[in-house]
Design a protein around this nucleic acid. Structure first.
Lengths: 159, 159
DNA sequence: ATGGGTGCAAATTGTTTGCAACTTA
DNA sequence: TAAGTTGCAAACAATTTGCACCCAT
C-alpha cells in the first residue's frame, strides 16, 4: 500500500490491478471491461449502473447493459470499487483506488452527500474488531440527517 | 426518553409509540398494522419483508404482502425499526426499540452478524456532524470481514 | 483453438400501485 | 360517515440469464 503513494498517480495502475485480478481468476481483460474501468475512474464521485451506462453511450463506447452489470461485481471483488449506498432500488458505487477511504453524511431531504474522514473513527473500529476477534476488511458508515441548508429552510415542514 | 428506562420493559410500549405516530399523521392503527408490529417485536434479530410475511402466515395472521410493504416504511419513519442492510436484492430490517442502538460486524464468508456498540464511536460521529454543520439523525455502520472461525478454517481458500 | 465474453431480448424478482370493498376514528 | 386501508392482481424497474456468435489468451 505504501509504495503507491510515492509515485505520481498513474491512471494505468488500476488497469494493472484489474488485469492481475482477472488473470488470477482465469478471466480476460476485454475491451468492454477496459472501457467500463476507464469510465469508472474518469468520473469522480458516486454512480449507479444506469448512469454509468449512459456515460459510456454518450462517448463512443459501445458496451451493453449486461456487461456493465457483469463487470461491476468484479471491480468490487478486486477492491477497486465499493458499493456505498442502496437507496430505494438503485445500487450506488464509487471507485476507491486513488480516492482515499471516507464516510458519508447523507441528507435525507435533498440527497446531498458530504464526504468525511476521521482517523479516530477508523482507530475505534479497529478496536471494535479486535474485541470481537473479527478481521475487518472494509466498512461503510452512513449518517443520515439534514444538511445545513435543508435544516435552515425546511425546519417546520412536515416530514 | 428517560422515563421509559424506569419501567420494566412492557411489550405494549411500542404499540403506543406507533399509535401516537400514526394519529399524529392522521393514519389509523389497523389490525393488520398491529399484527405486523407484534411480529416484528416478537422476532429478535434481523428480518426481511419476505421472511416477515412468512412468519405472519405461519400463525393465524392473514396479512397481505402489500400491507407488509406498506407498513415497514411507517415503522422506520417512527423510529421503531431500522433498515440495516441491503445485500443483493433483499432489504433487511431490525427493530430498535428496547433493543438499543448498535453497529454490525458482518462476516462475508458465513454471513454471521456480530452486534457491537461503542460510546466513543458515537461521540466521534457527533463531532463529524458538527464539523460539517450536519444534523445527523441516524446512522449505519457495517464492517465487513471475516469472523474468528472463518478466519481460522478458510484462510487460504480462494474467495 | 478454446474457453471465457458479448449483446440481445426474454425471464426473474423485489417492490409498488390501481381499484373496489371494507374499517377505523 | 368520511378518510384511510386492505387484498388482489397487474404493473414496474432493476438486475440476471440463455444463447448464438465473437475474441483474448
Amino acid at each position: 500500500m505504501k509504495p503507491l503513494r510515492l509515485f505520481h498517480y498513474n491512471s494505468s495502475m488500476e488497469k494493472e490491478i484489474f488485469r492481475d485480478f482477472l488473470s488470477r481468476k482465469g478471466l480476460k481483460l476485454t475491451k468492454e471491461r477496459q472501457k467500463i474501468l476507464d469510465e469508472v475512474f474518469t468520473l469522480h464521485g458516486h454512480f449507479d449502473p444506469e448512469g454509468l451506462l449512459e456515460r459510456l453511450r454518450r462517448r463512443e463506447a459501445k458496451v451493453s447493459k449486461a456487461s456493465v452489470y457483469r463487470t461491476l461485481p468484479l471491480l468490487v471483488q478486486c477492491g477497486l470499487v465499493e458499493q456505498v449506498e442502496r437507496d430505494g432500488k438503485h445500487a450506488r458505487y464509487e471507485h476507491t483506488f486513488g480516492h482515499g477511504h471516507h464516510d458519508h453524511l447523507i441528507c435525507v431531504k435533498c440527497g446531498r452527500v458530504i464526504e468525511v474522514f476521521s482517523p479516530k473513527l477508523e482507530a475505534i473500529q479497529d478496536d471494535l474488531c479486535r474485541e470481537s476477534k473479527f478481521n475487518g476488511i472494509t466498512h461503510t458508515l452512513e449518517i443520515k440527517g439534514y444538511c445545513q441548508s435543508c435544516e435552515r429552510c425546511c425546519l417546520s415542514s412536515p416530514q
